[in-house]
């Protein structure tokens, strides 16, 4: 099993930093954005940003695994 590349792991860390470790920075009511308390707004925003970042990770990871996939397709 090839371990994931450093770049992919760093990308994967971004959502963890933004929504988990930094909780004391964003868990507050103000400023209100689009009518939402800031903590609700922040986490909803990251529901949308996380797929974008992981799409980047997917693009990075896909060429590395392409060789394996051709093998699978041939075998399957």
């Amino acid at each position: 099993m090839k371990p994931p590349s450093l770049g992919t792991i760093l990308l994967g860390l971004i959502p963890f930093i933004a929504t988990c470790f930094s909780v004391s920075l964003w868990d507050r009511i103000y400023p209100i954005v689009f009518g939402l308390p800031f903590n609700f707004f922040w986490l909803i925003l990251w529901l949308l940003l996380t797929p974008l970042i992981m799409w980047g990770a997917y693009r990075l990871e896909e060429p590395r695994t392409r060789g394996d996939r051709d093998k699978q397709d041939g075998a399957g």
Binding site: P4, T8, I9, G12, P15, F16, T19, C20, V23, D27, N39, F40, L43, I44, W46, L47, T50, P51, M54, A57, Y58
Partner: peptide, 19 residues
Amino acid sequence: GPVLNILGFQPLMYVVSFF
């Protein structure tokens, strides 16, 4: 407020699943 943990872990568990 603590209900926000659901919004916190759901995207992150998919990040873990990616790997």
